[in-house]
Design a protein around this nucleic acid. Structure first.
Lengths: 232, 232
DNA sequence: TTTACGATTTAACTCTATTTAACTGAGTTT
DNA sequence: AAACTCAGTTAAATAGAGTTAAATCGTAAA
């Protein structure tokens, strides 16, 4: 989804400023309105993706506003923010069409996560965007097939393990550039603890051994920083 | 909607009794379980319409349980109930697949209205209509008929068992993507205990044997993670 | 109810990717 | 040059995965 538009209705200017800033710095486009009457106009004109409503408002209270919005649109998520803590107020909030109800004071982070939840913005899996990554790499006289995990060199074709494939692929994506050790570790191993660095060394040895017959290809170490894969 | 089934996971007996009674007197059908490990079994067998999970549980905590449930089913609403009040716990709850998070102590009425809200937002469906799933899959030179449980390969047509069919079908639904072992186990076997993984290995061997004459089709292992079915 | 059979699980064993360990060497700092 | 840190090599240990066969389970026919 592109940038989500938020309609935020709140009459207390100080809080409104803090929350608006918080939302904006998380990438939302925020329209702030202080009055319930005007808010409905905004809703109609701006078609926000989500609304955040205070309950106590001048002219038209939050419950009424929510009901009015629901007459026009039944699906846009509505979150109530209120200092009213009684259960019956919460129930009134849901009955008037709200989808969530946060008691003041609340944390911005909690508001954000609840908004995301209502907007279904959780990255389901990496599967969502089957990113069009390259499957086969040619370099020097070699070829790495990341699908079948095969490395063809001048001296033959060898099956390589998943980690070997990942490591070589990562270097190929940065060939002739410096690639930091830590970057590799974090990406492939998930953390850069001592034993994982030792483990990576072992894999480097294996890759170097596989590529030893290709004089034009070298994995160079840059001490204290990382590696550079030299190849055409 | 007919009577909604609730799976309620809570290890504190006194609270569990109160909440269960409250839900029942509001017309819900409640299954109460005190243990996270067993809860997953219940989920698979009972197919509840909504789940209410405590966070602190013996055997398997609420977050982990939620993640496991999400591997099997992505739409059933999940509500966390917890004495943990920190924002970061709330965020963890949503990140692990929860749809709402209520801090203890909470009022039964608030729980009820939030349940109702979620049940309206995710109208019963996924479970009732096991969405028009594909019955026959074509891949490479093969064809899997899930109705008659027949696998046609280049070398003939073979009857396959229910588990073989399910396993292959699941891989086909994720072909050329990484599919986690645990996801398969939870979905097909219902739990990921040791012997089930061994059993799955046996089925993989059988599938690989059946598909061995199709060089373009391979079930590749990604150690520590899962499998990838390579095919067109 | 018993038997027979196929489906699935359990068991025992093998193989292999990855990690751990121990040691060696190379570049840096003092 | 001594001391130190980082990196490379090799081998052993571990844990994940694969294979095969035997045991068990469940169901339908006898």
């Amino acid at each position: 989804m592109s940038i989500a538009k938020v309609l935020y209705v709140e009459d207390e200017p100080f809080l409104a400023q803090i929350v608006s800033d918080g939302l904006r710095s998380s990438g939302y486009e925020v329209s702030h309105v202080a009055d319930g009457q005007i808010a409905l106009q905004y809703f109609i004109n701006e078609r926000p993706d989500i609304c955040i409503l205070d309950i106590m408002l001048p002219m038209k209270d939050g419950y009424t506003l929510a009901k009015d919005i629901r007459k026009i649109n039944s699906s846009t998520p509505l979150i109530f923010l209120s200092a009213k803590t009684l259960t019956e107020d919460v129930i009134k909030g849901f009955k008037s069409g709200g989808n969530d109800y946060l008691r003041k004071p609340f944390s911005i982070d909690e508001l954000l996560i609840r908004m995301e939840s209502l907007l279904n913005r959780f990255p389901k899996q990496a599967n969502d965007h089957p990113e069009q990554k390259q499957l086969v790499y040619e370099f020097g006289n070699c070829r790495l097939d990341t699908v079948h995990q095969l490395l063809k060199t001048i001296s033959g074709e060898y099956p390589v393990s998943f980690k070997e494939t990942s490591l070589l692929e990562m270097m190929l994506l940065h060939k002739n550039q410096v690639l930091e050790r830590q970057t590799i570790l974090l990406k492939i191993w998930g953390d850069d603890s001592y034993y994982n660095t030792r483990s990576m060394d072992v894999f480097l040895t294996r890759l170097r051994k596989l590529l030893k017959d290709e004089p034009a290809i070298q994995i160079m170490n840059i001490r204290g920083i990382g590696y550079k894969l030299i190849c055409s």
